[in-house]
Amino acid sequence: MSLTELAFFALAVIAVATGLLALLVRELVHTILWIGIFFVDLSAIYFLLEAPFLGVLQLGVYAGAVTILLLFGIMVTRKRIFSRDAATGVGALPIALAVVTFVFLIGALGQLPGSAVPAASYSVTALSTLLFNTEAPYLLLLGLVMLAALAGAIYLVREGRE
């Protein structure tokens, strides 16, 4: 087992653990804590996969913005920040569905041969060249979607509706 694999293994265990904890803890604010760690952990995995730009992006967008946004959402919908949300019982069906999906995914993708090597031509410059040339339409579309989402979000939260 190589060092990379060892590191990946450790990070994967942390990811699964924090993901589960985020969903299972009773305190919503603790959830934010765990999901923050989860995002940082995934960022580390990206660095491991020789994708530092994405790693930084993950840190900035997810571990930074999204986490804060979620925390903010909890704060404005709660009278007291530390209040417990009654989690409903965990039924057999959801667990079964989750497990079966897991098995199928492993079965479908796990049979692929080989393993990844770092991209030889990798550089942030190459990525940005790609993004703003070949993939530019997608970027533009993303911009439009964001604009629409912005308008939609403002419409949803503006005062005096009804």
Binding site: L93, P94, L97, V100, T101, F104, G107, A108
Partner: peptide, 16 residues
């Protein structure tokens, strides 16, 4: 969401 996952599984069953 459960129905969506059920549909996803059905696709898996068909494909695999």
């Amino acid at each position: 969401a459960a129905y969506v996952v059920g549909g996803l599984l059905a696709v898996f069953v068909l494909l695999l």
